[in-house]
Design a protein around this nucleic acid. Structure first.
Length: 494
RNA sequence: GGCGCCGUACCCAAGUGGCUAAGGGAGCAGUCUGCAAAACUGCGAUUCAGCGGUUCGAACCCGCUCGGCGCCUCCA
């Protein structure tokens, strides 16, 4: 099945045909760097990371651009509040952003342009719009005249009359129309600014995305993405100014992800109901790498266009599901206790069934919940085959398949021992990279645990089950779970 | 007020006209085990918010009602 995706412009699933065969140009709106990012930002980044991974898996060469908005009123406010230079605010939160994305296993985009590095491109574009007569200057500010762009409202499915009827737009009498939006904002004496034909100022928010996407991807590119809250006015305005400027089609497919909600309400700064990525990791009782994968699994368990509700059991459920997969990986890695290899004759067709189901799901508008269902079914079938016995070669191939397909979702890539090492916070030491308290292994050492297991197994040998059970209970009290293997060995995990 | 989305089992969540309504979590029972754990097997929605309509046939299409949410102002 060929790849189809839902285009929010046409409100339909469409066959995906990139401008240039086997190449995809994709632009996604990034964050404004004035604070730590929350789960909502993480979802957007993760959704497009997954799309990027899957496109690459499908054989496309992807040029993925995601911007940083690093000059904005909010940044200036923050700087003032903290009494530090505004550039220090942006540097700090760009760094924090990288830290958080890294912990979620998000692959850095091909290009990560910053607005402040593209002032000239922005000024040129605004000048071009003024020249074409679709933008006008008032006292050092430049506005885009929406009436001059006949298709205004097409992306978000609204028209100017309806918008005006809403009448929630504050009226600025200097503008020709209340809906006109700022391309360039004049700077007050104490504010940062750049020289321009209209005096010292800074770019408006919408224009930077247009200027940077056109600069790095050309006037027309394949995919433009972002959270669904950006459809209006941000993306609508991008379309207007870009098309007016280039005279060409802008983005061909628009992809918008749903919100992360708390008690069914949109997670947002203004409502105050948000969890930052940072605090989720700090509060997690799992290791950083495990928490990252749990978050990823959780976020992938709902289709990207739907809203997803976050609660304190979300991570735990993902952990339980992932435990099953790492259990399977372990069984595939360790020597089989079976002498027969009854499963060998079936695994190839079963592998094929799985890969077909998986790609079918992903080709259908990146349906990750369906793809995860395929993984879970495959897990069941492999466990059954293991029961019948599998040769080392078969186990290796299956393992490779799991890892290869897992990679397109960013799952199942760590070693089983990393997965199983639960760590808790020590509190004192801080990580050099993240500045966060380091989590280290607390509790009994591996050596001690293995000694205890030895004692227990000797007791079992002598059928002294009360001693054996006492040892096991003591270990259980410390969170150590034992598993006796058919070959007489004992496996443990924290 | 305008535009739009959602309501599927205890929880999460696919499915949007036609075989028995995916999958995960939790739970219960069984096989295995000295007992456990893990794995496997079985159980779990005669039913998809409610009511009406279209159709040979609807969770899926249409209408209404109830409930929840979003955008229209910065927002992933």
């Amino acid at each position: 099945m060929p790849l189809t995706l839902y285009n929010s412009r046409t409100k339909k699933k469409e066959l995906f045909l990139p401008l240039t065969p086997k190449q995809v140009k994709m632009y996604v709106c990034g964050v404004t760097v004035y604070d730590d990012c929350h789960l909502g930002h993480a979802r957007s980044a993760l959704v497009f990371d997954t799309i990027r991974r899957y496109l690459e898996y499908s054989g496309y060469q992807v040029t993925y651009v995601r911007n940083f908005t690093d000059v904005d009123d909010k940044i200036l406010q923050r700087a003032q509040k903290e009494g530090i230079p505004w550039t220090q605010v942006t540097e700090k939160y760009i760094e924090a952003f990288y830290r958080d994305m890294g912990r979620l296993g998000i692959i850095p985009p091909t290009i990560e342009p910053r607005a402040t590095h593209h002032i000239q491109d922005i000024v040129d574009m605004i000048a071009g719009l003024v020249e074409k007569g679709v933008a006008y200057e008032v006292e050092g500010d430049v506005y885009f005249e929406v009436r001059k762009f006949s298709q205004y409202g097409q992306l978000s499915g609204r028209n100017l009359e309806e918008l005006l009827a809403g009448a929630r737009v504050e009226v600025d009498h200097r503008k020709k129309d209340p809906m006109d939006f700022a391309l360039w904002k004049s700077a007050k004496p104490e504010e940062p600014g750049w020289e321009s034909p209209w005096g010292k100022g800074r770019p408006g928010w919408h224009i930077e995305c247009s200027a940077m996407s056109i600069k790095h991807l050309g006037p027309t590119f394949d995919i433009h993405g972002g959270g669904k809250d950006l459809i209006f006015p941000h993306h609508e305005n991008e379309v207007a100014q870009s098309c007016a400027y280039t005279g060409k089609e802008f983005a061909r497919y628009w992809i918008h992800n749903g919100f992360v909600t708390i008690d069914q309400e949109k997670m947002s700064k203004s409502l105050g109901n948000f969890f930052t990525i940072r605090e989720i990791f700090e509060k997690s009782s799992y290791s950083e790498i495990v928490t990252g994968e749990c978050l990823r699994y959780y976020l992938l368990s709902t289709h990207y266009r739907s809203d997803i509700n976050f609660s304190n059991q979300s991570i735990a459920e993902a952990k339980a599901a992932l435990d099953n997969f790492y259990g399977l990986l372990q069984r595939l890695e360790e020597p089989s206790s079976k002498s027969e290899i009854g499963g060998d004759k079936d695994w190839e067709t079963l592998c094929k069934d799985f890969t077909e189901k998986f790609t079918w799901a992903m080709d259908d508008d990146f349906n990750t919940p369906k793809a995860l269902a395929a993984f879970n079914e495959f897990r069941g079938t492999i466990n059954k085959l293991l029961g019948k016995g599998l040769s080392e070669k078969s186990r290796e191939t299956i393992l490779k398949t799991l890892k290869a397909y897992g990679k397109t979702l960013g799952l199942f890539q760590m070693t089983v021992s990393k997965w199983n090492s639960i760590v808790v916070r020590l509190g004192m030491a801080k990580s050099e990279e993240s500045g966060l308290p380091i989590k280290g292994i607390v509790g009994p050492t591996n050596k001690w645990i293995e000694e205890q297991i030895q004692i227990r197994n000797e007791a079992r040998e002598k059928k002294n089950f009360s001693t054996a059970d006492r040892v096991r209970n003591e270990l259980a009290d410390q969170g150590i779970i034992l598993e006796d293997r058919p070959d007489g060995t004992t496996r443990w995990k924290r």
